Amino acid sequence: MVRHASLFSQLVALFHRGHFFNTVFRHQAERYAKGFSSWDHFVAMLFCQLAQAKSLREICGGLSCCLGKLRHVGVKKAPNKSTLSYANAHRPWQMYRDLFYQTLDVCKMGGPGRHRFRFKNKLLSLDSSTISLCLSLFPWAKFRRTKGAVKLHLLLDHDGYLPTYAYISNGKKHDVTIARKIALSPHSIVAMDRGYNDYRLYAYWTESQIYFVTRLKSNADYTVLEERQPPFNRNILADELVQFNGHYARKNCPHTLRKVTVWDNEQERQIVLLTNHLEFGATTISAIYKDRWEIESFFKALKQNLKVKTFVGTSENALYIQIWTALIAMLLIKYLKFKSRFNWSLSNLVAFLRWNLFTYRDLWEWIDKPFDVLPGTAQSVQYPLPFKGIGQHQLKMGT
């Protein structure tokens, strides 16, 4: 007797159907729909991510062979390739963006509470990743003369390492342009690399009581105002208060900043950090920047485990839908990892989930005990010999 729906059905059931249809109505996604609903479209694209389907044929074929197991999610008919392709090209991708933020709210309620540092400030990381595209297939995404690309900009919250802000732009847009659009709360701390170097942005954040930790440009012109005593037996080489000397640098950022020089033992080099936080210890500033590597790990996991490098559609709308669906799938996987008592790695959880998408087990029991066999599922059956009186040696010889 089957007591549970498939794991995929239970994952889809985590989405509130009422909120979903409110989002559909707000974006008028059903305005020109003829039989293929937005819900069926979302289930198909989520299946593309979790099952790692490589083409429209694999999505439609995979749903067709499992159609009887999709009744619990409200899908009655698998789409045709042309129907799914048309929906990807014309259904508004903004609906999937709003669905991402709705899923994020659910994950925040079930995720871990705080980051690993002692301070109570909100810790964030800001970075972008370039997704390369074939210019002949994606002519709208022109990046270089013979190369196409889009950029995925993320703001990662270190409370559970969840992306709290995402933005997809063309490959030519500068990272600082996106950083100016992000609304940050006062007293939060943002860790970022040198790509976000902008003195006017530093001044705005300092005046808004928003702290940042970044790398200092190698050719920066500054004056040392105060030298602080670095901590003993640490990798801190220098701790100084500085002010920029250049005319435009002084005009755009007249505030006193802090320069912390750190020795990297692994790569045997100096790392010069710049921050506007003057109270934390130099070791804490160094640890904040080191924890920024988590956003690099997030991009790596997203590209290796989900479908954001090969696409099932070539239009801009189809590409945006697939990327936003990948981010939604990543939130689901993170949520399962938070709830599980099993020591999952992210890649193993994605792989095991792909192999068991249509297994009939309780989802929350499965993520805790994935290797347990349910009672009655594996029984040893002894079959009698076909004829009595035949010896074992005769049966082996075929006589």
Rank of each mutant, 00 (worst) to 15 (best):
L385G: 09
S380E: 09
L353W: 10
Q382Y: 14
G391H: 05
G376N: 08
N356W: 01
P370V: 04
P375G: 02
R361G: 00
F371E: 02
W355D: 14
G391E: 00
D368R: 01
N356C: 12
F352A: 08
Q394M: 06
F371G: 00
S347T: 06
P375R: 14
Q379P: 08
S347E: 07
D368W: 11
G376P: 01
W366D: 06
V381R: 13
V381G: 10
D368Y: 09
L374S: 12
Q382F: 13
L349F: 00
Y383W: 05
D362C: 13
G389F: 01
F371P: 08
L385K: 13
T377N: 11
I367W: 09
T359G: 15
R354G: 12
F352K: 14
F387P: 02
V350K: 12
A351W: 07
L349R: 02
N356T: 03
I367S: 02
L357V: 01
F352H: 12
P370K: 01
Q394G: 13
P370R: 02
D362E: 06
P375L: 00
R354M: 15
F358H: 15
G389R: 01
Y360S: 07
F352M: 14
V381E: 15
L395T: 03
R361N: 04
Y360W: 14
G389P: 00
R354C: 06
V373Y: 11
L374E: 13
A378L: 05
V373K: 03
